[in-house]
């Protein structure tokens, strides 16, 4: 298929996945505002900002003691992360960029997928932080996350599973893998950066919930939430839909379906990298004592995937026609 269209589909997948991840984080964060202690709320905001690699408005988050102040500040942070047009990582910006990529390639996605996307976009455009915050912020984020999942489901069942579908899926899975690795590292970095560096079980419980993994964790292990076990589940469990390992496996199968691409040097490098990532997750991770450096290595590899994909299929150097 046309390289530019493939690239737009890939970015469509990435941006929507990113918007969905952030919506999920904000949904849980808005829930925590109802009943969690200030420390935990503080931890949650710091984790999100570390994850999106952005400084919060005003430079840092201060939520000490005063309940009123904490909620008012949360309002400003939620606005920045949800509706702020000038923040390229806000839910709105990611969704709008995803929709713009879809508009470029509307002929490559099914009308059902487009209409789902566009309807959500129109609704999002009409909202602002004041109207959303006043009623049910949790329901708002939950609805948005559900719409984005619906988009994925519609793509799955209304699009022909050729290269178009593969590039869309590839974008989603690359974003998911990068996001999962980034979120785990954000968790670790936020713990390290906190003044006490103490272990708080609830910070890890909330992380499990981001990945829809709390229930399976308590089934598999116990009610005692331990960081190493949490990481095992989120990194290497092949059955957990959003685990890093599963995303890498899906990236591997999409790339196998698409093929090497015209620029075989990058195409082969891409295949090797995916294989290496899978090996790190499946074979090194379980025996590794020093997991954080390995996780950083996996995260870097996931970032590198993007550049190889771009070079292998979209911006390849032109050789003589085949």
């Amino acid at each position: 298929m046309l390289s530019r269209s493939a690239q737009s589909l890939y970015w469509l997948g990435r941006y929507l996945e990113r918007a969905g991840n952030l919506s999920r984080l904000l949904q849980l964060q808005s829930e925590s505002l109802v009943d969690r202690p200030i420390r935990e709320i503080h931890f949650g905001w710091n984790r999100i900002y570390t994850y999106v690699r952005r400084d919060p408005p005003g430079g840092e988050i201060r939520l000490f003691g005063d309940e009123e102040y904490a909620l008012a500040d949360s309002f400003a942070l939620a606005d920045d992360l949800t509706f702020e047009r000038s923040n390229p990582s806000s839910v709105y910006s990611c969704f709008a960029l995803g929709r713009e990529n879809a508009r470029h390639t509307r002929h490559c996605i099914s009308p059902e997928v487009w209409t789902c996307l566009n309807t959500t976009y129109l609704r999002l455009q009409e909202q602002n932080i004041a109207s959303m915050w006043q009623y049910e912020p949790t329901a708002f984020y939950q609805g948005l996350a559900a719409d984005i999942e619906t988009f994925g489901g519609l793509a799955e069942c209304t699009m022909y599973h050729d290269d178009r579908f593969s590039f869309l899926q590839l974008g989603r899975q690359v974003e998911r893998a990068q996001g999962a690795a980034a979120l785990l590292l954000s968790q670790i970095d936020t713990v390290v950066a906190s003044s006490s560096q103490e272990f708080h079980e609830e910070d890890w419980t909330s992380l499990l919930r981001v990945f829809y993994a709390l229930e399976v964790y308590t089934h598999t292990y116990s009610v005692a939430v331990l960081p190493d076990r949490v990481m095992d589940l989120l990194v290497s469990d092949p059955l957990l839909p959003e685990s890093l390992g599963r995303s890498v496996a899906l990236i591997g199968s999409e790339i196998a379906a698409i093929g090497n691409g015209p620029y075989s040097r990058s195409g082969r490098a891409l295949q090797r990298l995916v294989g290496r990532l899978a090996a790190m997750i499946n074979y090194e991770w379980p025996d590794e004592e020093e997991r954080i450096p390995l996780l950083r290595e996996i995260s870097e590899g996931a970032e590198e995937l993007h550049f190889l994909i771009t070079e292998a299929y979209f911006d390849y150097p032109i050789q003589e026609p085949v």
């Binding site: 298929m1 046309l2 530019r4 390639t105 691409g261 015209p262 032109i318 026609p321």
Partner: peptide, 26 residues
């Protein structure tokens, strides 16, 4: 049809190709 822009097209030896994910295609 593929929806192409000028930048997707390459002319070599008076033949027009488009840049696809599998290489140049006439």
């Amino acid at each position: 049809a593929e929806l192409v822009e000028g930048k997707d097209l390459v002319v070599r030896d008076r033949v027009v190709y488009m840049r696809t994910t599998e290489g140049l295609k006439q």
